[in-house]
Amino acid sequence: MKLNGKNGKSDTNLEQIREKTDLAVSVENLVVHYETSSETVEAVNSISFSLKKKRTLGLVGETGAGKTTAMLALMNMVPNPPGRIIEGEIRVNGLDMRKLTPAQLQHVRGSEIAMIFQDPMTSLNPVLTIGEQIGESILLHRNISKAEALKETQKLLERVGIDPERYGEYPHQFSGGMRQRVGIAIALACNPSVLIADEPTSALDVTIQAQILQMMRKLKEENDTSMILITHDLGVVAEMCDDVAVMYAGHIVEYGTLEEVFNKTKHPYTEGLFNSLPNINNRVEKLQPIQGLMPDPANLPKGCAFAERCPYASEACRENPPETHSFSDTHLAACTAYQDPDFRIGRNK
């Protein structure tokens, strides 16, 4: 832990309330709702997961599954109103994020936990130079002069593959891929121990995607960063992650190591995700999408949220919330069908 922040006081405070732990992140029973006068959107419904130091957790699921909301909650940054963390415990490096004061939160954000956002076209401030935006992070958390911060900024630019002399240019002068490199430089400016990457490549061209991912992995290894990678691209997960959590309608439906989730798939939704991948060996084969749509999170069914789309669903699935079954110390799936010990899903890819 760096003790050279500007807010020297809150630093010492933080050390007093920090719990000793091996986990970079732990989340217990997190519930986040968006409440408006007309409806309540149940975005995240009692999820629990943890991230060990130096590992990468992939958070997979379709748009609207609550992935981004869960990660904003991790930084205690759910937009309020209308968003509200209803319950749950969120710990980052042993700090209870829900109990920190605004000043302590500002100190932790950026220096211990940082985030790379999805769309680099909108996540950079158009009227500030990229140098100002990267340097801002450095000046906030480190007690150094502007001239030193500029040097640090230029070093960072070099590390993310941008000509350091371009620090005085504005976001509109860069392409999408280059802007995402700036976004990464902002997130990495103070060597955070936890990095959240929210679909960092989904707004980019395929050719640029690989470059960015490769660079992120390199920087992560250089800095011993723990990372949570949000994506809906299973290929990216296979490439980057150690552990995988599959989210559906605000729940984690399957959770395990990469090997377990990919090769010993248990949840019918995860199965559906794999089955819907195009088959590169048989290009004439029709795609097999999961039928139907995710339920409206403002109006979730009382039973399993996936039951309507699930080929194995029984009456019990529609009536009661799914039970969580564990298949190893690390592998969990929330599916009632495993009450029957002989139940097997039929993945065909």
Partner: peptide, 15 residues
């Protein structure tokens, strides 16, 4: 409503 304010918040900038 813009995303870049979220970026600034994530850096630890004050409101």
């Amino acid at each position: 409503k813009q995303d870049y304010l979220r970026t600034a918040r994530a850096k630890g900038q004050s409101e």
